[in-house]
Amino acid sequence: TIDDAFRAIERAIQAENEGRYREALKHFLDGGEMIVTAAEKEASQKVRNLLLHKGKEVLEWAEHLAEWILE
């Protein structure tokens, strides 16, 4: 659900702030994927587009974090 997705993102932010970057990455990926999944089930085109945009933002952040971890 969207609530689960945002809880995962909150955990990711907390982990990132505490320097637990790999854990943060996992939570960002989980949250982003949950948002995209919820968007695919959404009946309203406007809400679907907003959710897809937010999911994409979260997944892009996860990608940047992963690249930073690997440096």
Rank of each mutant, 00 (worst) to 15 (best):
A8T: 13
H53S: 14
L52V: 04
K56R: 11
W61E: 01
S44P: 03
I2S: 05
A43I: 14
E23N: 02
L29G: 01
L29Q: 09
T1K: 07
Y21V: 04
R20C: 08
H64V: 06
A24S: 02
K54R: 07
Q45W: 06
W61A: 04
R7H: 07
E23A: 04
A24C: 12
E16S: 15
M34F: 05
K56I: 09
S44D: 15
W61Y: 15
F28T: 01
E57C: 13
L59N: 04
I13H: 04
K26S: 06
Q14N: 09
E60M: 13
N17A: 14
V47P: 01
D30H: 09
L59W: 06
I13F: 08
E23F: 01
L70K: 13
K46S: 11
A38H: 06
F6I: 10
Q14S: 08
A43G: 08
E60R: 11
V36G: 08
T37F: 04
E33C: 13
V58Y: 08
G19V: 01
M34H: 03
G55P: 02
W68P: 00
I35L: 15
L59Y: 09
L51S: 00
I2E: 03
N49P: 00
E71V: 09
N49E: 14
L65K: 00
L25S: 01
L50Q: 13
K54A: 13
D30K: 14
K56S: 05
H27R: 03
K56H: 06
H27F: 11
R48Q: 05
L65I: 05
A8R: 10
A62D: 00
R22G: 07
G32L: 15
V47M: 12
E33Y: 14
V58P: 00
L50C: 14
L51R: 00
A8F: 12
T37M: 11
R22P: 04
F6T: 03
G31V: 12
L65F: 04
A12I: 07
R48H: 07
R11E: 05
A39Q: 04
G32K: 05
A15E: 06
L51Q: 00
R20G: 03
E33S: 12
T37S: 10
W61V: 02
V58Q: 00
G55I: 13
A8D: 02
R11S: 06
R11G: 03
H27G: 11
N49L: 07
G31E: 03
A5M: 06
A12T: 00
N17M: 11
V58N: 00
E57D: 10
Y21N: 01
R7G: 02
G19W: 03
E10D: 07
E10T: 12
I2P: 04
V58D: 00
E16K: 13
M34C: 08
E63T: 11
H64S: 09
